[in-house]
């Protein structure tokens, strides 16, 4: 009997350790980021760092202002949400309620593939097709711009937006819809006035997940956005928070390197904010 209990305890212990690996990783990353990100902020000054408009890390008189990166990340993410969420959301409504079984199966397969494509491939396709296209359509000298990044990000967030919205739409009890139909509403009225409001929290979750994915993407964006530290404008070359860290890290040294960690810390703060929002949405929907 005792041996059995010891075995149980040992297994519990092993699983506890495995669980702690995840928690430990988060803790280590957080602590490391804070420790390595704070010195540069202290040296540059928080206001100069966050609201400085000029980034020139290797100039003779270096300047470390990351306002262009912050604004670019916000605009870029917002743009991707504005384009990607309606497409993803309506696709999810179609798949959940209107699509024939076969179409549904093919489309779900495609969305799965879309989710699995590595971001460097998105970047490459953007670089070779999207950038020349923007150049020709809008008649600008170069297509690498905030717009190109927004379009790439919009496509990249589609799978998560569609999948999460789809799950929440499918979870709406059938009786709600039947009641609505029985009262004489058309099926379109039913979907938008009954099903969608009932799936509201899931759809919000989808949007927040999309924001998280868009703000954290580096590789694809680095290949299409041009990476010059300009203040954001639709057809200008811009640099995101993520790409600011990724593009300079390999050769950086001294204060420049520390400042890159500080940028990562700012990005981390944004991600935490997004996660907190997500938790809040979940909590609210459980209370209802």
């Amino acid at each position: 009997m005792n041996i059995k209990k010891a075995k149980e305890d040992a297994i519990h212990f092993i699983f506890l350790i495995l669980g702690l690996i995840a928690v430990g990783s988060v803790l280590v990353i957080t602590i490391y980021l804070v420790i390595s990100g704070l010195p540069a902020i202290r040296e540059i000054g928080l206001a100069d760092f966050l609201f400085g408009r000029r980034w020139a890390s290797t100039a003779a008189e270096p300047e470390y202002g990351i306002l262009p990166f912050i604004l670019t990340s916000i605009y870029g993410t917002a743009g991707a949400i504005v384009i990607g969420v309606p497409i993803g959301f309506f696709a999810a409504v179609y798949l959940a309620k209107m699509a024939p079984r076969k179409v549904c199966r093919v489309m779900e397969l495609c969305i799965g593939v879309l989710a699995g494509i590595p971001s460097v491939v998105y970047g490459l396709v953007g670089m070779l097709i999207l950038i020349p296209a923007i150049m020709n359509i809008f008649n600008v000298p170069d297509g690498a711009s905030l717009l190109a990044a927004i379009i790439v990000l919009a496509v990249m967030i589609l799978p998560s937006v569609i999948n999460v919205s789809l799950t929440s739409l499918q979870a709406v009890p059938r009786e709600y819809e039947e009641a609505s139909l029985a009262l004489g509403a058309t099926s379109t009225e039913t979907y938008f006035k009954v099903t969608v409001p009932a799936a509201k929290s899931g759809i919000f979750t989808a949007i927040v997940l999309g924001i998280g994915r868009a703000i954290g993407e580096a590789m694809a964006v680095m290949m299409v956005a041009g990476n010059v530290a300009n203040m954001p404008s639709l057809f200008q070359s811009v640099r995101f928070l993520t790409t600011a860290v990724a593009s300079e890290m390999s050769y950086s040294s001294g204060l420049q390197r520390q400042a890159l960690f500080s940028i990562a810390l700012v990005l981390f703060f944004f991600i935490m904010l997004i996660n907190a929002t997500l938790l809040l949405i979940k909590k609210r929907s459980q209370e209802q």
Binding site: M127, A144, N227, S247
Partner: peptide, 22 residues
């Protein structure tokens, strides 16, 4: 510190690809 870059790319290959498409 005077260059007015339109794009700052992170590898030689990216520079060559971009120049070859524009």
């Amino acid at each position: 510190d005077l260059c007015q870059y339109r794009q700052e790319l992170t590898s030689t290959g990216d520079v060559i690809t971009t120049v070859s498409t524009n």
